[in-house]
Amino acid sequence: MKKHVLEGLKILNLAEQYPGPYATLILSDLGADVINIERPNGGDPARQFYSFYESINRNKRSMALDLKMSKGREIFMELARDADVILEGFRPGVAKRLGISYEDVSSINKQIIYASISGFGQNGPYKNRPAHDLSYQAIAGMLYQQAETNEITNVPKIATGDLSSGMFAAIGVLSGLYMRNQTGEGTYIDVSMTDGLVSWMTTQLVPVINKTGIPGLPDEPGYGIYKTLDNKLISISIAHEDWFWKPFCLVVGLNDISTHNSEGRRSNYSEISQRISNAISEKTREEWEKKFEQSGIPFGSVLGLKDVPKDPQLQERNLFVEIPGDTERPTRTHVRQPLTFKDCESGPTKHAPKLGEHTKEILQDLGYSVDTIKEIFENNICYEEA
């Protein structure tokens, strides 16, 4: 039977809502045992949007534990004693006040990899400022076009700060584990959502900072989205490659501009874009798909969310994994993390947990008796959803 890459790795996840759950989604798909430590009163706030919560918390276990109570902290520290990784998403200083900081945990577990995910990082004038993804994007310069034109456009639908920090947290954890293999000691990782977005803006920021050119790549008419005869959208993605431009022009009937190089196309962006738009509007999307495929033109149909799982390329890549239903839950289809490894599994197998679903199981693993567990629940230190 195929093994999971991170089989045997124990992760305690205290980070709620999006970044921590996305980081641990990646790690749990790769085989890590992820235990979400949730507050007893309602758990992760994202649970109020259950479809959202379910999509990034499948494959994990849930323990509802009151960390404000001394016994709750004691139980957490017992779990931390033999954990490999802890992720937390509190504001800077909160974990220390609770008595579960890196310093607290590393005093009993020198090998712990401890990652803190926060909006602005553990230091700096903004470290305690409350904010969410849109504000991190704004400060990182991701909305620079709005700043330069002073025109407000739609709020971005994709929470890139949450997702990027989740990925950086996963990279940090795996780097920490590699370092531990070399030194025998754990480490502390400071993950800033804003810093991650600034990193993603590298090709826009560096040319501006050094006054060496324009941010990113210049506009190219062969790189855009166009509407077809049947009122559907198709993307053409000729970035700056002249070798794609000539065959594209021959296919769409723009032979007179087929010898334009990248610079010539950019200098006549508006006119050429309009001509492409007119040409694409003369045939259906299916017709263009066939022509572009046959001619080796970079393209992709613009798909709605309902169409993505039907795409033959994505189906062939087995990105959508079905978890069978049980007596309490219906069958669900989830998106697995995208990495594949030779002779290893890399996808979800378990449904998203109910709040505190595994609390008793985890306490039993720690050696607590049935009577003691009953007492813990009666004192509201732990909780499980009925």
Rank of each mutant, 00 (worst) to 15 (best):
Q204T: 12
F377R: 10
I225W: 06
L65V: 05
R285A: 07
M142R: 01
L79M: 15
A46H: 14
M142T: 02
N59F: 09
Y50P: 09
N278A: 12
D82L: 13
E38D: 09
K3C: 15
C382S: 14
T160Q: 09
L355G: 02
G224Y: 00
L30Y: 06
F168Y: 15
T372I: 10
P156G: 00
G166M: 01
Q111P: 03
L27R: 04
T194P: 01
E378R: 05
G264M: 12
E287T: 08
N261A: 05
L30F: 11
P298M: 03
V302F: 04
P218T: 08
P348I: 01
R275G: 05
K246E: 07
L9C: 02
R39I: 13
R81W: 13
R73T: 08
S270N: 10
S116C: 01
L233V: 10
T24R: 08
G141Y: 02
S281Y: 10
T228F: 05
E241R: 15
G20F: 06
N379F: 07
G72E: 03
C249S: 12
Y144W: 03
N318E: 12
D104P: 07
F299L: 08
F120R: 03
I75T: 04
S28Y: 02
Y269I: 14
E361G: 08
Q313E: 06
Q182L: 11
D256F: 13
F168P: 03
K306I: 11
I214L: 15
